[in-house]
Design a protein around this nucleic acid. Structure first.
Lengths: 376, 376
DNA sequence: AAAAAATATGTAAATGTTTTCACACGCTTG
DNA sequence: CAAGCGTGTGAAAACATTTACATATTTTTT
């Protein structure tokens, strides 16, 4: 018995198994193939598949049979065309060359959430440099091209430069607000932030509780996200009338180098700090390097606290005590917010704050010979 | 003056501003509108927009002018439907929860390459566990669904389980072959490998050249990719008639923990090795932790060599000497191979080998009191 | 000067699905 | 028995875009 085939198929369009091919490549079954196999017209197949209009139950049976044997699946592009959605979300990264383990965690969590909801995740980094004129900034092609994505998650640095453009082309988006705070009033959109002020406050209190009085903050506070952590640090010190310790603000170098330089400077002091609170884990890593080079033991001689809980820094020995921002939760929640927004565009602006939490590991301990303070 | 409009437009298709509408709703400009306005055919517009085939620069000017005034943006889904391609490549990750900095580098490099060629990059992790029955393994929806992606890059672990499925649905793919070697003969596809046998051989020779005679290899050689590095290690030792040193093979733990346990075992020896060659950087990190805990100085007391050049391990102090596999080049080349394959499906199978290179940093030095060997 | 190649453009087919329209058949209603 | 209605079906249009092919013009080569 020869299989039923469309007229347009010629012998060389068939492969050994009788399935349709084209130029020797297997072709996916189309509605036409199904129609032929079921001995009906494409219109009827469409009616059966969409359960619209009239059709004989017996015909439906034949159609479904054909669908099954041919493994027919509706063409994705047609589906997207008729539903006017691409079922795709873009994760916009802050910079082409950077994707650290924190972003990776958010990305993976978001991916899971989106996949479960039937969406795909594309990602696009953009190039940004501070001396690019605003009008020359370009949205990634993928986003600028209408219809390619249904929404955007922004979780990197400098995305504020793209917010207007996104609004202009009317693309729903959600942002991780932390890299943008200080201009928070300008964010007229759904944003998620983690409360790093309180996180830094708690971290500093933790060091105070261990008995430290000379706690240095390392990080350029001109960066808003570090400025906030500095604020928490300062509040904790202020409540206990303890003087702050800072190194030079801005060296114009990367985080790790920054930490190295700052640590060197702090160690030049006749009375160096007994604990260092780094504005992020990368800076903590730099501090670490300098301490290791000088043979200063952590935490026996100096305690070190990071911020961010970047998984890749778990390699340090002893392991780094830090503050986690729950990257997975953030990633999943960003995706969730966007999905809700897509489902119901009229929903009011949504802005939520996630707590941070100290992760006690082994880089912090009581200072050697210093009695504990009575804390406020 | 009335604007030039397609013939098929009737009065009620126009809105107040003379723009086209339909059922009282504003209609977006189509390629036909542009063609009419520019006084050319839709084919020409398409050619100009896609920069394909021949066209007069003057015509192009007119078309672009029309595009601008009509604010025409082409419908992505129609384009994809017509050209029967999604302009999208999938980067298939080895596991839902893992995306290490090596993969990130390849991913970013591939992204750049693909974006430049007009493709988008989606990524999909799959869940894999050794006790999943082969017939229950599922391709990510994104890939299984016809037409969603044009090709796949496989660069993680365990992808061999998906190769048949990809062939069945006739989706072009390229693989990073290193995680699959041992079954290399089974790969009937375009594969790229980095030559880690030679890389490991060179790394071991480097340690020998420094004067080490007691060099331990740490890593489970049952894993094919470690087995190859072991092979290189052994060849270098064999050429110089030096005995190998191994720790227990399989602890059934993660890489870092593995490194820690192996180092502890090696240190129990009355005559411990003067150098350790770890099968990858993560294992090296574990070894590091144990050495650091015991207060053993690197490289003064023990030299440590990694493999892979994972950027996140640059945080170790002193920095880790390792073997780089040129992740960016690999990522870009994987993308390039796939693009070439898409352009010309008939091109013969392409399998190329990339060299590795030692990255001299600070974790290796001459052993303390041992005279240099004369090497073969 | 003829032939060949390169350039520029239009026509029409193809893409996969839904939808509109027309038509047939059989049944009910006046 | 004619008109009308409900049911089932197919042909063809419609959608926006690309692309294969044809044709016309210009330029280059012989």
């Amino acid at each position: 018995m020869t299989p039923i085939l469309p007229d347009t198929i010629r012998p060389h369009d068939l492969d050994f198994s009788g399935l349709l091919c084209k130029r020797n490549r297997m072709r996916a079954a189309t509605i036409k193939d199904v129609a032929h196999r079921a001995g009906v017209s494409t219109a009827t197949v469409s009616r059966v598949l969409n359960n619209s209009g009239y059709f004989d139950p017996e015909t439906a049976r034949a159609v479904n049979e054909a669908v099954k044997t041919l493994d027919y699946r509706r063409n994705v592009h047609w589906k997207r065309l008729s539903s006017n959605s691409s079922e795709t979300i873009c994760f916009l990264l802050g910079n082409r060359d950077a994707l650290n383990s924190m972003q990776v965690k958010m990305l993976m969590a978001a991916e899971r959430e989106l996949t479960d909801a039937g969406f795909d995740l594309v990602f696009a980094p953009f190039r940004y440099s501070p001396n690019t004129a605003p009008e020359r900034l370009q949205l990634p092609r993928l986003i600028a091209q209408q219809g390619t994505v249904d929404g955007v998650i922004l979780a990197g640095l400098h995305y504020e430069n793209f917010l207007d453009a996104l609004s202009n082309i009317n693309l729903p988006y959600v942002v991780l607000g932390n890299t943008y705070i200080g201009h928070q009033d300008k964010i007229k959109t759904d944003a998620l932030v983690y409360d790093d002020i309180t996180g830094a406050y708690e971290a500093t209190k933790y060091l105070l509780r261990l008995g430290h009085r000379r706690i240095a903050f390392v990080g350029d506070t001109n960066l808003p996200w570090f400025g906030r952590r500095y604020e928490g640090y300062r509040r904790a010190l202020g409540e206990n009338n303890i003087e702050e310790i800072r190194a030079t603000e801005d060296w114009g170098v990367g985080y790790i180098e920054y930490g190295k330089l700052a640590a060197s400077e702090l160690l030049r002091d006749a009375n160096p700090p007994t604990a260092v609170f780094a504005a992020n884990d990368e800076i903590a890593g730099g501090v670490w390097k300098t301490l290791a080079n000088r043979g200063i033991r952590i935490p026996e001689e100096i305690s070190l606290m990071g911020f961010g809980d970047r998984e890749d820094f778990s390699i340090l020995e002893p392991s780094l005590t830090t503050v986690t921002v729950f990257q997975e939760k953030i990633g999943a929640e960003l995706a969730g917010m966007l999905l809700r927004k897509l489902q119901n565009p009229e929903v009011p602006l949504d802005s939520r704050t996630f707590p941070c939490q100290i992760v006690e590991r082994n880089s912090c301990a009581a200072p050697r010979s210093q009695k504990k303070l009575v804390l406020a």
